[in-house]
Design a protein around this nucleic acid. Structure first.
Lengths: 215, 215
DNA sequence: GGCTCTTTTTATGTATACATTAATACTGAT
DNA sequence: ATCAGTATTAATGTATACATAAAAAGAGCC
């Protein structure tokens, strides 16, 4: 049941069904989930370790807020870890490892032709997840993916991003090329540049939002 | 009591008092700590989230092993995050933020003069912790510090590192200079190079050890 | 003697009980 | 009516109880 509680709560938080900043009590959640407090409590401890909730001693829990600062911090972490993944992948760029990246990139190109923004976003996401997982550092991947999941919480915002898809696709291809060529320094640098640009854009939008966290 | 259980277990794991790979049962730990299973269990969940123990469903827990692979993964994460911290710090290199770095570096120089290896190691550690915490990304700092703590578990090995202290000190000064000058690209690059060298050396030694994890 | 199947033991995972503590409601005075 | 102080309610944190499942021990068989 811990697993169920964890999965459900995590999904609800990441989808903003449980709104950032909201507060809950254990009995409340336990009843909603149809189990006793024990497994809920254990799930909450895990979620706190992932920065998805904050346990306020003796007075319940709070869904982690989504402020511009939080998102910036998370983006910086993801960027650093993905760049490291790119570098690492460039050390052992086997065809098998590069295939998922190449495939995602082709989908990005196709989506660009079709003007299908949703498909483009999904393929982009797939590219980055492939980059993270194919690099071969499990701990790094776990950490990076966990933080990456959180980025989706600002989706209402992300959707408003006016990206230059063509330019972005080209940048991704360049990255893949550097990796395939085994040029780890170039791969790391390219990735960082690319992400830094995206970060800045995202934060501009988030900054305008003035997302408030209570208390 | 959760706090106590967490602190004690964490300390014992990081000091290798609880040896890597060893297995325990909850009632065992609860008795040792003089409390019921509940707080011990909650502490173990946190420790698992930090990769310090592995909870094997229905059959107890295992202290996370210290293999060459694990240490390499951790080093790579720490390196990536510290490099990001160096870059970030270079964006806002206020004197107040740089002071702790400079102080640690001066202690490194002094230790070099005295030929005091222990003092040098402590100062080096202080420098990196300062770098991590002064950068101003709390989440990044928390993550980096947690992984950095784990590096100490291979201390039996680390002690055998034959470092060229003079060269290392120079490299650190160069990094601090780049940060102070606000040259974030250079800061990030310098840090990474420096760390990559250390990593390689560490892994050479660890590789010789052929540290085994059971099962 | 070794092997398979059964019995017993024990640890985990969840539920519940209980003490402590914080928040809320209430009482009485100004 | 407002506020201080008390009484009540309710949630957390820990301990304990209990059902389930895995491991260990033992019995019967080849």
């Amino acid at each position: 049941m811990v697993g169920a509680a964890y999965d459900i709560l995590r999904r609800r938080i990441l989808s903003n069904e449980l709104p950032p900043g909201a507060r809950f009590l254990e009995p409340e959640l336990a009843q909603q989930l149809g189990m006793s407090r024990t497994p809920v409590r254990e799930a909450l401890i895990r979620l706190e370790a992932e920065d998805l909730v904050r346990i306020i001693p003796r007075r319940g829990i709070q869904i982690a807020p989504v402020t511009a600062q939080v998102m910036e911090e998370i983006y910086e972490i993801v960027t650093a870890l993905e760049a490291a993944a790119a570098r690492r992948l460039a050390y052992t760029p086997t065809p098998a490892r590069l295939a998922p990246l190449r495939e995602a990139l082709q989908r990005m190109d196709a989506a660009l032709e079709d003007g299908d923004l949703d498909a483009w976003g999904e393929a982009d996401e797939a590219f980055h997840r492939a980059l993270i997982t194919q690099a071969g550092n499990e701990r790094l991947a776990a950490t990076a993916l966990r933080y990456r999941d959180q980025v989706g919480r600002a989706r209402t915002v992300t959707l408003r991003l006016r990206r230059e898809l063509r330019k972005s696709n080209r940048a991704h291809w360049a990255l893949l090329e550097a990796i395939a060529a085994g040029d780890s320094d170039r791969a790391g640098r390219l990735h960082r540049q690319q992400r830094d640009r995206a970060t800045e854009e995202l934060l501009t939008i988030l900054g305008k939002e003035r997302n408030e966290a209570e208390r």
